[in-house]
Design a protein around this nucleic acid. Sequence first.
RNA 1: GCGGCUAUAGUUCAGUGGCAGAACGCCGCUCUGUGGCAGCGGAUGUCGUGGGUUCGAAACCCACUAGCCGCCCCA
Length: 435
Amino acid sequence: MGTLKAVRGTRDLLPPETELWNRVEAVVRGVFARYGFGEIRTPVFEDTQLFARGVGEETDIVSKEMYTWQDRQRSESGVGQSLTLRPENTAGVVRAYIEHKLADSGMLQKLYYIGPQFRRERPQRGRYRQFWQIGAEVIGPAWSGSDSAIRDAEVLEMLATLLDELGIKGWRLALNSVGSSTDRPRYVAALREALEPVKAGMCENCQRRAETNPLRVLDCKEPGDQAVIDALPKIAEYLDEASREHFAQVKAALDACGVAYVVEPRLVRGLDYYTRTTFEFTVADGSGLGTQNALLGGGRYDGLSEMLGGPKAPGIGFAIGEDRLILTLQAQMALAADATLGAKKLDAFIAPMGVAQNAAALVLAKELRAQGLTVEVGDGTFRLRKSFEAADKLAHRMVIVGEDEVSSGILTVKYFEAGEQTKVPRSELAQVLRG
RNA sequence: GCGGCUAUAGUUCAGUGGCAGAACGCCGCUCUGUGGCAGCGGAUGUCGUGGGUUCGAAACCCACUAGCCGCCCCA
């Protein structure tokens, strides 16, 4: 073993890429604020039970992708608590909602988060073991209107606006309803029954899915299986009247807002807590994501709070894969030959001539920075030539601080773009550099 | 977790068994307080790691690690 490296599936984010991350997050926070969301920050690790109960024991996430360990034993209880790095953030948000009795306000809660999540999957482009999600949840007691279709439509309209403001091109919204918490098991049972006589003729994957997770069969892309899949029962036929009406209202509101969507009866989502509306935003091939083309996903979870021992509190939420969002932006920027990926140039580079001028140069830098200018300082041991070379890469202008300048208070400013040079009194320097 | 491809300089890559290479970038000099251009010069390095085959391995073999692609699943 030689030098230490970031562990598999994790990565460092360095400048100037982090600047893009910050820009994205600034846009996100702005949009969320306009829609009335406030930020929540929950712990990165939680009691393992939270995810087992919330996300679902049988899901891939819980059954094989969690980073779980036993905490150090406490003196009296004997066994340490089982803890898990959060694989997603909705369960944590709902846990906090219950714990802090937010339902008692009677108000709709609109909460958003930005933070790392952890899943032990095979890493791939756009899929990391520590990855970042930007998510939001709308949750509240039923009388707050949290189960209304207007909330679903509002969230989807916000996402469309957000992607547009971020400059994501070619996104596509896929929409479906998986029915209420009673519709869904009925449908799964019907699927299982319908698959029993025909599954032998399907691909290997589907034969396995027919046993483990019949809903997944609907996702199969194997051409030979499509005829069989088309003949399977449709989820829409298993929705009760209320769910059907709810879905119709969501679609009508989206139509009214001019948000384009495609109803995909086959869109099923992996987490157990989803009810009624489920959705996914994807980008076209060639947007830098390969087959990991889902930018964000989400849905309604009317029973989650109760599953976690809380009050009845319907909700809807989503999670954006921030890594994938950035990857897409980078690919689309490169495609558009957008040259703004590089670091921004500073307002000024200050070049002390000789070590004796170092302190004076640093004082000048301090003054300029205090006035909001971005400034870098050289070193007096540099020859002037070297200062110029460094300055030209970093900044738009260079300020020379030599003996003459310090004693006279008149500084020499070089403008790289114009190739011109002027003398500026120290009192006017900040103003000149700002221009 | 399964399958495939890949790993050489800071970067992008060439190098099919015989001295470790190119381009870009970097550093120095031409040029002592005036950059970009140009000329000349220099350093690029555990050839991913460990083992094996061979007189000799960056190259062939094995294992491991990591990345990418596909599957699974998902953000």
